[in-house]
Design a protein around this nucleic acid. Sequence first.
DNA 1: AGTTGGACCTGACTGC
DNA 2: TGCAGTCAGGTCCAAC
Length: 296
Amino acid sequence: MPELPEAETIRRQLEAEVTGKTVRRLELLHPRAWRAHTSPKELADLVEGRRIVRVGRRGKAPYLLLNSKRPSVLIFRLGMTGLVRVAKVTRRAGASAPAPFRAAGAEAEPSALRAVLTLTGGRELRFYDQRLFGELVAFPTHDVDNTPEFAHYGPEPFSGEFTLDYLKDHLSRRSAKLVDVLMNQQIVAGIGKIYSDEACFRAGVRPGRRAWSVTGPMRERLWRAIREVLSVGIEARGSSAKDETFRDVYGIPGRFQDRMQVYQRTGQPCRVCGTPIKRARIASGRGMHWCPKCQK
DNA sequence: AGTTGGACCTGACTGC
DNA sequence: TGCAGTCAGGTCCAAC
């Protein structure tokens, strides 16, 4: 599932690959590839003929800052299975459907192709999304943090705003489970199932605890663990575990799954103490994983 | 307002 | 072998 490390991997690669290029054309290949309140024409107007001046990321979403005479931003909401690929333009001008893309890594499912941005310089960006939870979103501004997409977001985990006191404050005021608080994008942006479970393991705290019950040295361990585990995830170029379709823009899987301690390891021995990893459901029906001995 | 649970979606997997 | 049922989770939304 694309979370902050996966989005940051995409951001870094796109920055190197497409900065300075101009979007010639946007093709939308599925009615759910863009947000419903924007028409395809509005979206195309915000993207086509504009130069990519910067590549950014907020939480789990990479975005392109575009400009010609007026600024705009194109946000990739990746949802569950969203992928962004960079490819050479291989089809002839005027052809309506892109040829299946084969990259150095695993091949993306051609039927999951939702949108194509043709760029200058013979490159194109392809947006794939198997389960259709992702979409493209654009706004006529560079003030990204104040767009409807991100206005309600909490601080970036690596920003100076995400202090220990900030985390303590939000934990103490919540009765929800810790894992739900960590995944709440309004509290801190960029954490999903994988990295919340892994941060809790690293901090030695059970993800099912009520947030207010996380007190004392646990809070500082958790605060450090969040950033450590996200840093490791970024270094590993994201996570491509068994059920995960994530690939980088070249089609290459990430390596964080090799470092996972609890996520998707139900019943397997804890790498620290050998106790079988447990799994339980949280409010939204999703799973959380923890070691019953290492985590209190 | 905060918390909880369902809906959305489809490929992979499970069990009969 | 085939096919219905289940699982997976990011985000939104309704109900309490």
